[in-house]
């Protein structure tokens, strides 16, 4: 999971559907797991689309089509809406995707991806439409995601766009460091915040003991 990001070149798995919500990425019944076993979540990514009710693979779903593989998922707009479950990001990471490209991500899900070493890349609608076309024409279409340069390139057409990622997250991804590693280093700042803000001005503290 904590693998350093640099330049990723890969073929893509296309999912040209809008508003794919986290219930579709990983159905609610998988929230019952009490571990975060990557393989388990990866095996159940898009479960209800991917498998028939008898558990056999649904051959019409893209993940069961051997023509499409790679570390990059290309999804249509408003990807990851709905429930905040981080399991959706675990499933995407667990399946082996390191990048998701879309023209629009739901907020919480986008953050969840970043926290789990999956890079959400926001591209323009026209770039996305062209990318879907390239992949439809040739499933082995390669996309290059250059994290240091913050660019994404459709190698079939040569078209390239830059994408946003904040300097802090970029640093974390490139160094395989997570947020908790960072926060644990800031304890003195937290304690001085608490000393500045105690009492009923900050009713969050002091008022809830005895439980």
């Amino acid at each position: 999971m904590k693998k350093k990001f640099n330049i990723i070149r890969s073929s893509c798995v296309p999912l040209p559907l809008e508003n794919v919500d986290t219930d579709q990425i990983i159905p609610a019944r998988f929230l019952k797991a009490t571990s975060r076993d990557e393989k388990f979540f990866g095996d159940n990514l898009f479960c209800d689309w991917r498998y028939n009710s008898d558990g056999t693979p649904n051959s019409s779903f893209v993940l069961n089509n051997p023509a499409y593989k790679g570390e990059i998922l290309v999804a249509d707009k408003n990807f990851g809406s709905g429930s905040s479950r981080e399991h959706a990001a675990w499933a995407i990471a667990g399946y082996g995707f390191r990048v998701v490209i879309s023209s629009f991500f739901a907020d919480i899900h986008k953050n969840n991806e970043l926290n789990n070493f999956v890079l959400p890349v926001v591209v323009s609608e026209s770039f996305l439409a062209e990318l879907f076309e390239s992949i439809a024409a040739d499933p082995s279409t390669i996309v290059e995601v250059n994290v240091p340069a913050q660019t994404v390139t459709n190698m079939a057409t040569g078209h390239s766009e830059s994408f946003e990622i904040n300097g802090y997250k970029k640093y974390c991804l490139m160094n395989a460091m997570d947020d908790i590693d960072f926060l644990l280093q800031s304890k003195d700042k937290i304690e001085s915040y608490e000393n500045r803000n105690n009492g009923y001005d900050s009713p969050g503290r002091g008022a809830n003991h005895g439980c």
Partner: peptide, 30 residues
């Protein structure tokens, strides 16, 4: 605000955290 990380997010102090059984086991594991 506890601090604003350079070219990054803001570190926010949280007064209250609620935990339910579905989204926390992996956090405690961590």
């Amino acid at each position: 605000v506890v601090q604003i990380v350079k070219d990054g997010p803001t570190q926010i102090y949280i007064d209250r955290l609620y935990c339910h059984e579905v989204t926390t086991p992996q956090a405690f594991d961590g």
